[in-house]
Design a protein around this nucleic acid. Sequence first.
DNA 1: ATGAAAGCGCTAACAA
DNA 2: TTGTTAGCGCTTTCAT
Lengths: 331, 331
Amino acid sequence: MSRNQPTIADVARVAGVSRATASRAINNGPGASEPLRERVRAAVAELGYQPDETARALATGRQRAVDVIAVSYGSSAGWLGTHPYFSRVLAGMMPVLEGVNAQLRLHAVGQENAAEEIEEIAANATLGAVLADITPALATRFHRRSRRVVSMVPTATAVPAVQADNIGGADAAVSRLHELGCRRIAAIHGPDLNPCAIDRRAGYLQAVQRLGLPDLSADGGFLREGGYRAAQQLLAQHPDIDAMFVACDLMAAGAIQAITAGGRRVPDEVSVIGFDDSIAAVCANPPLTTMRLPVEEMAAAATRLLLAGTPATGHRQRFPVELVVRASTRK
Amino acid sequence: MSRNQPTIADVARVAGVSRATASRAINNGPGASEPLRERVRAAVAELGYQPDETARALATGRQRAVDVIAVSYGSSAGWLGTHPYFSRVLAGMMPVLEGVNAQLRLHAVGQENAAEEIEEIAANATLGAVLADITPALATRFHRRSRRVVSMVPTATAVPAVQADNIGGADAAVSRLHELGCRRIAAIHGPDLNPCAIDRRAGYLQAVQRLGLPDLSADGGFLREGGYRAAQQLLAQHPDIDAMFVACDLMAAGAIQAITAGGRRVPDEVSVIGFDDSIAAVCANPPLTTMRLPVEEMAAAATRLLLAGTPATGHRQRFPVELVVRASTRK
DNA sequence: ATGAAAGCGCTAACAA
DNA sequence: TTGTTAGCGCTTTCAT
């Protein structure tokens, strides 16, 4: 570094006080007279002094940063860039970090050496970490090293988490479709190993079983292309499908494209209901009826939990998943 | 902090060497014999030692972090969360930061006290900052305090920048529509003050003028709702429109919804061409033909520039904007 | 109320 | 090659 920033010693000298007094004045700490505080303020302004957060962090032992960890399945660029989820968690965190003088550090850890990277992040964690989409095993690993952590997806029981009712949401979606008169309700699911995908699949299965409907499932891998292909395939195999429950909006947008490209109308011939209420839902045409996952609120809650101290082991904060009606389901 | 992590002193003691030797071994520095290195490695493993990056940063004077700054016009949550742009810049940066032991710090600065926040970030910058969407005035402010900065949008001449050919891209889009036989080409523009929006508008104007077409412009504010409304209005005022150039995909997705909701077909009756090639383009139905803004590549380049040292004042790296043909334009 | 001085955990001159 | 020592810029006892 070639920065030649003024230090607190400069401020102290210009103000004609000791470094300790300068520090007290700058941090609004107790034990400094108003006249001296004023001189320090003047010196700060004159020099354009900005405290070095690194030194401050070392001296106090706490750095006031919250880490966000996302695992990059395959190429980090692909997942992080194309899935609307991450920007929503960031969007949810930023406002609560506003004005509390805390940094937001973003980490994309690769799959291979994930364990080591997690360890290192945990070792340097300060306020703590928000686990955006990590497996229970890795979450446990982090938790063992630092308890200042909260997961945003279903995880190991010990790890604090904010979680949405994915099962209930999926069930509600299918029930809704059933109320609308649909009887051949297909589903497009996410990756087998994804905790959220697992729950949404369970919710679908639970609903069709209760309602006495057939299980018409396909896999879409949480990606738009997968949703497109799955919908095509479903339509080919079961031409009488009158509705689709799609486990994420991105896939649902693809599914709608496939349905209309195949010459059927949405929602007149087939109703589609997505999951997430992400940007993909409003960009789809017709706009998607979907189950809203309150990602921003969850991320905000997770951040507040960290700001408030060390979350209790096993802590759970639940969030409802609610129906948002748009135009992809019939009246 | 109640962390009780082992320090390098513990490692040194366990390994039976001095702290200096331990440091040398840990950092693969020169001047340490293999046997001692081995003992240090063993001690590190035994204690589960992880170097404290803060202390390291203070000692070396460089913290190896790159900052990303996004200005939050209105609510920070809204903009950051709903616009696909930011996640693309993050996605572009992450891979180049991989394995170089550098953190990514994210800042959303509010509009009111933007100047101060910018100053503070600049003062604590280490590798430097990527300005995602900042005004020329603020960029200049940052540049004055730290030269380690690169803007991703058109900016003041002194500030280093990576920039795409927005004017040329917009012109090319209109030209393309003209080649396709369209003669009533409307446009939906972004915010008046947004540097990218300004250039895209200029490109449209330049093209219609050259081609002898009428200027059919409306404003959409770079948001989907704005695109929807602008398209409705355009269609009402000029029923003979046969194409639309829309300055961003998010607005274009809205425009397509408005067009089809109004009973016209895309692309048969009206062709639509967007800008960005964001997630909104592939979620739209039909999928959008668009001008691809290589955001990830630009963000990666910006990051590499910072990693390589202090970018030269006024540095410019240009990126092409290319046509991506999908289904929203007629053949 | 103020200042002197001791660290925070680490790296990097300098000595040995 | 190894160890000793002096900081990095700041906060925070502890005297005064």
